[in-house]
Nucleic acid binder design. Structure first.
Lengths: 258, 258
DNA sequence: ATATCATTGTGTCAGAAAAACACATTGGTA
DNA sequence: TACCAATGTGTTTTTCTGACACAATGATAT
């Protein structure tokens, strides 16, 4: 505990020796589980609210590398689908008062003109991860790290609700270009699961039969000789992505919209 | 001339009192003229090369406001279609050596740790303007401001060629969502002109009759009882965008691709 | 004045893609 | 063992797309 406070003090008062001022990033980390789109959130200390995992940019790393680092710290995962989608730069998006209040309650002395009291512009990233493989981990600056149903995140700090909304909107548009399912689903999955994912992202229902036809027409799925048992009804086939065809589709984009 | 140097000195050595360090923006300003996509470029002092119009962000303005300001300074236009599309954050994208060399040749003393010698991250914007209405204007930091054919920009400074490429790529994708012609064409235009614009952006030819059918099906165009005379052949009708339908299309997006 | 001709306006038709819809199969559950 | 909800696999209908044909027009050349 003592060490943790030491680390925090170091970060707050000397962080600008390593990080660039004014620039931050926030990650909207999506997962899919039990037919629900999930977002990974952090519990802020001394605040009822939750927040997106975020961070700052080291002086010798790109935005993408920084986002990758943040993602790895929160999920333990590497080589993850990660895309920047928007820069958020409202003048009052930072809340310096709240920050100072937090520091007081932590008993940390913040020097005048501290870098964290400056205005910050944040680059929004969204990541798609396999819910089963991610291992949520809080850091020294947060009390908890958990998955939330996308439609049940409540009121987050700052403009984070807005950021999530923008991420979802971006993902919706890119659904036509990127085979997004590959990153959100486990290796093996059923057609109904894939469809539910698409329906959740798009926010509308799709015809079961037309969905399957179109999906298979892309040629990026291989059907296995295996079925998912255990459900209360007819056991559906399992599929997995054909990595070769998937890569090709990534370059050329998928045809037609939903 | 003396005043200009004064202004430059002020900007270079005290700019960080007004602007945020580490953050810049670059504008890819597109125009359309004589069946060609054009980009507005600035001639850099003491350098053979040209550059994208860019700037920095005042401490009390958003990225969008800053981009709008830059755009206005270079074209005299306001309320322009302007979208951010990517953050460029390569570590070596800035060229501090070149900057210091430039300053030496200008005879300007640059203090140690000057804000402009830091690493900068740039937010790329693209703008669509009416070529006829824009009035290119160089500023105190450049020798000229001119339109270039998109396929004839030559080698630009830093990563500006890359930025233009990304802007074009983004515009191509958004062509399916946004009625982009509205911003690039004058108020009244002919169907062949609109088609040429689309062909130029997409880099491929389209069937004249199919193009018209699909375009009219969007319902965002009004045909006028007027024709463009003066051409050597049959006079084509003039069209203009139906602003109401255009706004609706902006929200909902256009269907189908090209 | 008139014939010329590249360009524009309008329409058709076949094939592809999407939307709407029907029925047999299956694997737990009652 | 009958039941039933969910899955697998079609067909039909409608819409969209791509390819193509022909008449109309308006400046230009003769």
């Amino acid at each position: 505990m003592m060490e943790q406070k030491q680390e925090m003090h170091e970060f707050i008062n000397r962080g600008d020796e390593h990080f660039m001022a004014h620039i931050s990033l926030d990650c909207v980390i999506f997962g899919f589980h039990a037919n629900q789109l999930k977002v990974l959130l952090l519990k802020i200390r001394h605040d009822d609210r939750w927040a997106l995992p975020g961070g700052f940019v080291l002086k010798e790393e790109t935005m993408e590398e920084a986002a990758d680092r943040v993602l790895n710290e929160r999920t333990g995962l590497n080589d993850i689908f990660l895309r920047q989608f928007h820069v958020f730069s409202d003048i009052h998006r930072s809340n310096t008062e709240k920050f100072l209040e937090l520091m007081r309650s932590e008993g940390i002395v913040v020097e005048e003109n501290n870098w964290l009291t400056k205005r910050f512009i944040s680059v929004g990233f969204y990541a798609l991860v396999d819910y089963e493989k991610a291992i949520p981990a809080e850091g020294w600056d947060s009390e908890a790290c958990e998955w939330f149903d996308l439609d049940n995140v409540g009121e987050l700090i700052l403009d984070h609700n807005k950021i999530i909304g923008a991420a979802l909107e971006t993902m919706r548009r890119q659904l036509n270009f990127l085979p997004i399912g590959y990153n959100l689903l486990p290796e093996k999955f059923t057609m109904p699961e894939l469809q539910k994912l698409y329906e959740t992202i798009l926010g509308k229902t799709l015809d079961r039969r037309n969905f399957q036809r179109k999906m298979l027409a892309y040629g990026i799925l291989d059907r296995l000789d295996e079925r998912r048992k255990g459900g209360a009804h007819k056991a559906p086939y399992l599929y997995k992505f054909n990595l070769e065809q998937y890569q090709k589709a990534l370059k050329e984009g998928l045809q037609g919209g939903w």
